[in-house]
Design a binder for these strands. Structure first.
Lengths: 355, 355
DNA sequence: TACGCATTCACAATCGTTTGTGCAAAATAT
DNA sequence: ATATTTTGCACAAACGATTGTGAATGCGTA
């Protein structure tokens, strides 16, 4: 299986050009090639030029695998998300990819499908691929964080985004969910709503805790009493939103506004309201969370909290790459908190009510 | 930077366990370790057991990078899609990931953002990462396929899916777009529609050619004349759908049904129709393509062609892995054609019209 | 006893890149 | 002129797993 015809010619077949090929052609060592390509100071400008020119001419493509093996670190970033469908994670991933590509990194994406077991497997896979760093958004059911000990022990930098471990000291990029819940509720109150309900997410997840707290704080700051009956736990699916809305309608004193911690649940609520003949926003005003694409095509269009998804992805990559560059800092835990933005649409607009 | 305390102890710090560590511990060679772990026949059962046990005990994790370097091929699959938002590609990617994971491969995902330049860069990146194979769905504007010569020359197996090069002999997994256009149009005709229009996609893309041809064939088979004025080219965005629908409404004899080659365009059409006071489906019946998630939340819900996205991803991976396993077959081009399925909903249902 | 054969394993080269160290020549200082 | 620094490059050892070749062992058979 002779890959070369004679000892000093170039790869004529499909075989990729290696540094050794360049070195042979130029009569220098592979050391020189390597250092010339990485602009090392100990290589003369003339030599650098020659190497660069030949590399271009022969279409030299570095073998990242070999480089990664040698320096014990690849140019790969591992990403674990619960799922990729839906605007939020798709956009965050998009942001991650942009930022990573710009920095010369590639991205491996794994989906946990909201399953802890799969999440564990993903982590193993990614560590096996020798990723330089890990970006993780937890599956819904993850309470046990031992599979991340492996990551820490190995020294692989790790940044969580959006869905982070509850009471752990970690590096993370998150949204100010409390602020999101706050401005959303505040907006509904400003529209003149008297009884604002909340369709809340799973209580063990930090993001939903924040949104709930924001809701409560806004009520308190407005001097309104918090009626426990107006807060319904749900799983943030459309069906769960329907269930929750039905429960709220069955109340002795039903709400005249609903803030849902997720748009899908709000969509379910909207459909139940329509089926029940309630007008939105006249009878019940609606506000959601995530600014999903479909908020623009419902009737009426849905008010929702935008999370600046792509920005979150980019911020996460920035933080991760800082840790990659300076592993010593890994111990000092950092948090980046992004500010949400309320997108006001017809579902919550009652006209000049405040006036 | 001594990684080991003495010459024969184990890595106590975070350093991963290597085959050399196992070998040293057991007093055998790395050859034996490697072959025991890969169940090579030349290793005795007793030795195999010992190795396996120690590997488990020390939590040995193989360094895929090294293996990939040695055998010139990684366990990575590269994927290039135009974008990842929206149901279709997200689902296909999901299918790809499932199938790949099951086969022990990981997946690197790149988005071309419908940009040929970015697509070229993606290909380079993925080849640089030494992927074992490539799965590609073309960007809208890709006419020039020279960047794939590099792939061929290098011998990296390549499978296209959905958006394939027009007149090239390639391995591909596609939907029977013609059939999709056909059943969709046939369904509209069966509902009693007399003038079925078509909002068509960019003419140079194979998928839209197929959908258009299916539309024409269904008309012909039903003995209806094909009115060129009823076919409008569009870019398949929502805005383009609006434009197209406005043009159709301005016709002397407007259509009483529309088959759009994409759901987003159909959504635009729907909104124009509503704004114009036309009833759907009574005045104009509607059918689309892709079975996007939002087809279920419009009013009325939209009839659409389902593409069996996940199945497409899985089929593509299957084909790719066959090529990886047997590179000799790479010359014989294969095509897998999936059958579409029409999801009938209110936007096209005129009641028992055929009766 | 001597030979062939199967079993079980070690040696050593290899993939392509990076990098600490060393050595010569050229440039500068004394 | 010599002593010292700088510059420019090569040698060779890694990184960790794979694999062709060949050697030692044990067994059965002629």
């Amino acid at each position: 299986m002779a890959r070369r015809g004679t000892s000093d010619d170039l790869p004529a077949n499909g075989a990729p050009v290696s540094m050794a090929d360049l070195a042979r052609e130029l009569g220098v060592s592979t050391t020189t090639i390597s250092r010339a390509l990485s602009d090392h100071h100990s290589i003369g400008p003339a030599t650098k030029q020659k190497v660069l020119k030949l590399a271009k001419k022969l279409n030299y493509q570095p073998n990242h695998l070999a480089a990664a093996l040698r320096r014990g670190q690849s140019r790969l970033l591992g990403v674990v998300v619960p799922y990729i469908e839906g605007r939020f994670f798709a956009s965050v991933v998009h942001g991650i990819e942009q930022a990573a590509t710009k920095a010369g990194y590639s991205v491996i994406i794994c989906q946990s499908s909201e399953d802890v077991v799969q999440e564990r497997r993903n982590i193993d896979t990614l560590l096996g691929a020798q990723v330089a760093g890990l970006l993780v958004s937890l599956a819904r059911g993850t309470h046990d964080f031992r599979h991340f000990d492996k990551v820490r022990k190995r020294g692989t930098p790790l940044v969580f985004f959006d869905r982070t471990p509850a009471a752990e000291a970690v590096n993370a990029v998150v949204l100010n969910d409390r602020a999101g819940g706050y401005i959303s509720t505040q907006h509904l109150l400003a529209q003149g709503c008297q009884r604002v309900a909340h369709i809340a997410g799973p209580p063990h997840m930090t993001i939903y805790q924040g949104r709930r707290q924001g809701y409560l704080d806004a009520l308190a700051d407005a001097g309104r009493p918090a009626d426990a009956a107006l807060v319904v736990d749900a799983d943030m699916t459309q069906e769960d939103g329907e269930r929750a809305m039905r429960a709220l309608l069955a109340l002795p004193a039903p709400p005249d506004a609903v803030f849902a911690a997720g748009d899908s649940a709000l969509l379910g609520a909207l459909q139940v309201l329509k089926a029940a003949g309630r007008r939105v926003p006249a009878d019940v005003a609606l506000a959601g969370f995530s600014n999903e694409g479909f908020t623009l095509i419902t009737e009426p269009r849905l008010t929702s909290v935008d999370q600046h998804c792509e920005e979150m992805g980019q911020a996460a990559v920035r933080m991760l790459l800082e840790l990659v560059a300076d592993p010593g800092r890994a111990s000092a835990q950092r948090q980046v908190v992004l500010q949400p933005e309320l997108m006001v649409r017809e579902s919550s607009l009652r006209g000049p009510a405040g006036a």
